[in-house]
Computed example of a mutant assay.
Amino acid sequence: MKTLVTGGAGFIGSHLVDRLLADGGRVTVLDNFDPFYPEAIKRANLADAARSPRFRLVEADIRDAEAVDRVARETAPDAIVHLAAMAGVRPSIERPAVYADVNVVGTVRLMEAACRVEPRPRFVYASSSSVYGDRDTAPFRESDPVDDPVSPYAASKKACELMAHAFQHLHGLPVTGLRFFTAYGPRNRPDLAIAKFADLIERGRPVPMFGDGSTRRDYTYVGDIVDGIVAAIENCRGCHLYNLGNSSPIALRDMIAAIGEAVGKEPIVERHPEQPGDVRQTYADVSRAEAELGYRPRTTFAEGLRRYVEWRRAAT
């Protein structure tokens, strides 16, 4: 199978690339190495993949229609997995126009290019649990209304879902959206809480805890996420949306304590007010993904943290 992966140098993307290559596929990565976090980290993520003769890297921006169209025509992929995006709720509040441009316009450019490839490739794209907004009821189901985004990032991801539906309806493009729930694990983005907190705890520095520590996140190990993506590629037809989570939310205060246990140091907690754009909880109902994709997350939070800390120490 030939697969085009956008954002393939990133955290989730690089794990997917490694998996596709291990399965015998040919993989083209399209990435612009955006400076949201250091390029050197992303280059290192692709170090193993770059040794394969079945791997190709194309450096380009997903908003560049000519470049995107060229790589799609040259690659003629069986599947496009679109993971490239401006990520993060809090940064999107500061740069809403950039998030709308990259996430929405970039996604449309890719779907336009996909529609010019024959036969039509399967199009699997990353959405986010953030589309569910701030709600009391849980777990979150794909059939729930998602009309109240509380950040530009969430709004941009919801817009991508709407665009995907339109392209499937108008052009017959097979599209599958995956709502990721707080991925973590080796190669974790340095801006994400688990990476930041592990670094602070290991250095004996205070860990900022926003609010009273009761907010909950459905932390999902990256290997389980990749299993879900691969299953979505294999089953992509029509227009579908799936939650990819762990269905086991962890409170912020418990997450901090668990990281402390994993690194072997007592966390020093520093209290801060709640931040704009934060939601009280994320909690995935994965019954649809289980029934239709065979998705079953297997990695406990404690085991995932152990693997992350092991990787972190080996990488430094």
Rank of each mutant, 00 (worst) to 15 (best):
I12Y: 01
Y153F: 08
R312Q: 12
F140Y: 14
L46G: 14
A154P: 04
T137G: 04
G172N: 13
D191G: 14
R73Q: 15
T316Y: 10
P139Q: 05
T316L: 14
R109P: 07
A284F: 01
I233L: 12
Y295N: 13
A251Q: 15
G204D: 06
A79P: 06
A114M: 02
A47F: 00
D136L: 14
P186Q: 09
F167L: 07
S127E: 01
F36V: 07
V226Q: 06
Y283R: 02
D23V: 03
E74R: 06
R179T: 01
A85H: 10
D224L: 13
P96H: 05
I41C: 01
A65V: 12
D254E: 13
D134E: 03
V279I: 09
P149H: 05
N243E: 09
V263R: 03
V29T: 06
S14P: 12
C160V: 14
E303T: 12
I225W: 13
L57M: 04
S127V: 01
A60G: 10
L173M: 12
G8Q: 07
D64L: 13
N32K: 12
G133M: 04
L4T: 11
P208R: 10
A289Q: 10
G25N: 15
L241V: 00
L16N: 09
E266Q: 06
K265Y: 10
V269Y: 04
Y184M: 05
L162E: 04
P208I: 05
R296H: 08
A258S: 14
E234C: 05
A258G: 08
E112C: 03
V146Q: 10
L252K: 12
F33K: 07
D212C: 06
T75L: 06
V27M: 12
P91R: 05
K158C: 03
P206D: 11
A314R: 13
R296A: 08
A193T: 05
R203W: 04
R280I: 00
E274L: 15
I233P: 09
A40V: 07
H171Q: 13
R288P: 00
L173W: 11
P249K: 08
I80S: 09
D134K: 03
H165S: 08
K265A: 15
F123C: 15
D212Q: 11
D144R: 07
Y308I: 00
A87Y: 01
R109W: 07
L293Q: 01
L83P: 03
T220M: 07
A231L: 06
L21S: 11
K196C: 03
Y242D: 11
H272V: 01
R271C: 05
G8P: 14
D254H: 06
M255V: 04
I250D: 04
A284H: 02
R70A: 11
G88N: 03
F11E: 00
I93H: 13
A195C: 11
P190S: 13
L241S: 01
V104Y: 10
D64M: 14
S214Y: 09
D191K: 11
H165N: 08
H15N: 12
V207P: 05
V89C: 10
A44M: 09
E274K: 14
V286P: 01
P139E: 08
A251I: 10
R120A: 12
Y99E: 09
Y283G: 03
R187P: 02
V102Q: 01
T3H: 11
F140R: 13
A100K: 03
E261G: 08
G238T: 06
G172I: 10
R288F: 09
A47C: 00
T107I: 01
E59D: 00
